[in-house]
């Protein structure tokens, strides 16, 4: 063995196991595929103004319903707007709303569920009964009703999704906490005179948050589906803002002549969901406690 090889081997042995397990992340095909797809989508969304010379909203009625050409790769819609441009700008809206919509329920649900599971008692009872009430309704029914109540627009979509999907996080975190709080290391921390808050944040959270994170990945898919569905039903982001759901709705009229107009945004939804699902699966492989050892 050469000196360099020995040095490398020694360094590898010295390296703590955590970085060893993180080092293998790129060997996880699912995770990498998901990262590539989602990364490309985010990149395209961010760079949309640079990738296309057209305005996504400005109408050009003389050039409406054109077939794909060198100028308009995917053709134009009934108001003469470039479909590719609207698709790219639509990614901005749909991805942003999807990611942001996950944050609020993630935080609210995780905190409530964690407190319920950790402290138990009447607080647990109340939180879980409320969770049961929300769980009893089908997801879409509740979202649609809430969007009706709150009115059209991005803000009401956030509100509706937050109100509906926090319950899943609450359930997940409560279950995790019921197990975690009985662990010896939590008992030991209690015995070491640590406060409840410190134990929850420093000792339990790092051990249980990964489960909620993994769920959040699949929840983004659900949320994007919900936004697109609401858009398709005319309840989502108000026109003329480009959005995949309303694009499908608009393209539907011309399905026999310009079928690309409804199909392309639909495919975009499929690819996005696929990427996020792969990312979620890959993350769960990486973060699951049974794989960490």
């Amino acid at each position: 063995m050469t000196t360099a090889a020995v040095a490398t081997a020694t360094r590898a042995m010295r390296r703590p196991a955590r970085s060893r397990s993180l080092k293998a992340w790129y060997r996880n095909g699912t995770l990498v595929a998901g990262l590539v797809i989602v990364g490309l989508l985010v990149l395209v969304a961010v760079l949309a103004p640079l990738l296309t010379p057209y305005d996504p909203i400005k109408q050009d009625l003389q050039n409406s319903l054109l077939s794909p050409s060198a100028d308009h790769w995917l053709g134009t819609d009934k108001y003469g707007r470039d479909v590719l441009t609207r698709l790219l700008y639509g990614a901005r809206v749909d991805l942003r709303v999807g990611f942001l919509a996950v944050l609020i329920p993630f935080v609210i649900g995780s905190v409530l569920g964690a407190l319920a599971g950790y402290f138990g008692g009447w607080f647990d009872t109340i939180v879980m009964r409320v969770v049961d009430v929300f769980f009893a309704f089908p997801f879409y029914v509740l979202v649609i009703v809430l969007v009706f109540v709150f009115g059209n627009g991005e803000k009401s979509i956030y509100l509706a999704i937050a109100a509906v999907s926090w319950v899943a996080y609450a359930k997940i975190m409560r279950g995790e906490l019921l197990v975690a709080k009985k662990q010896d290391y939590v008992v030991a921390a209690r015995l070491g005179g640590m406060s409840h808050g410190r134990i929850l944040v420093k000792h339990i959270a790092p051990n249980v948050l990964s489960q909620a994170l993994i769920y959040a990945m699949s929840d983004i898919v659900m949320d994007i589906m919900a936004i697109v569905t609401l858009g398709y039903l005319g309840l989502g982001i108000a026109p003329p803002t480009p959005e995949w759901g309303s694009m499908i709705l608009d393209g539907q009229e011309f399905i026999t002549t310009q079928w690309l107009q409804a199909t392309i945004p639909g495919l975009a939804v499929v690819v996005t969901s696929l990427g996020l699902s792969l990312l979620g699966d890959g993350l769960s492989d990486l973060l699951s406690p049974e794989r960490r050892k």
Partner: peptide, 10 residues
């Protein structure tokens, strides 16, 4: 149990 009485992620 020294196995379970230490926090695995700290």
């Amino acid at each position: 149990e020294p196995m379970t009485a230490l926090n695995p992620v700290v």
